[in-house]
Amino acid sequence: MNAIINAQNLARHFGKVEAVRDVSFSVAQGLCVGLLGPNGAGKTTTMRMIMGLTAPTAGQIDVFGAPAATLGRQMRARIGLVPQEDNLDPDLSVSENLTIYGRYFGLEKGYLARRVPELLEFMRLGDKYNARVMMLSGGMKRRLVIARALIANPDLIILDEPTTGLDPQARLLIWQQLTALKKQGKTLLLTTHYMDEAQRLCDHIVIVDAGKVLAEGSPKALIARHVPPHVFELPKPVSRKILALNHPHEDLGDSIIFFTETPAAVINALDVGTPYLHRPANLEDVFLTLTGRSLREK
């Protein structure tokens, strides 16, 4: 397997704060890998280390087979970054934003003249060619940031929360286009707080918390390994018969969710007429089981 990114026992301290304590993972070529974790888990710091923007205090991070910090310009040009904040040039037009960004890569004019309209079409911004960036909606800006990251046709695309704050239509389009990029053989690394997004896009998932890797694997494997396959959500109060089944459960406030291997047993134990919701276990269940349900703000 050809690893595009290889992190070994990565650590990064900021003074006394340990943002990343011990993170190891690798990203194989052509896969989409999701880096998931609560706010402050160390995701952005890890991505900055991959980009060579922050040096690790300990451990090793290789990109394209060479240490990230010493990656040459030609190799750096093969990475496209979609940062968390929209750092576009607000005074410039949509197309100028892309053309000027292309010049930072030393791309020639002829190539950019073809590439810019192509990318705007790809991100459904074709009719915004001459629009000023400050006139765009949040979803359009986000799509433009993604288009910008693709300007030099990178082999590795790093996306830090690509769809945060977007409406469902915009998210759907971004998902479609990221899937299209994967089909072209691009390697993707993304962070997200949307578990449905991770489950849909990622071949492999790394869950981090407090700077450490808690679990990794394909979405299916993670679900199979960490939570029972069936989930029931029942309103409170829950009957004694259900509690007597002794299934693992979580209190959500006005309702309780039960995890079970045997859905029939739960359905049989329900009083007639009790409303309930039965669904397959998903990545969000895994995430909350591993990282806990309480808020993380300190």
């Binding site: 310009r73 030609q74 750096r76 040009a77 930072y104 890569f105 030393g106 791309l107 020639e108 190539y111 073809r114 590439r115 030099a152 046709n153 072209q184």
Partner: peptide
């Protein structure tokens, strides 16, 4: 898919 000539 055109591989661009990047001269950074």
């Amino acid at each position: 898919q055109t591989t661009p000539l990047a001269r950074p």
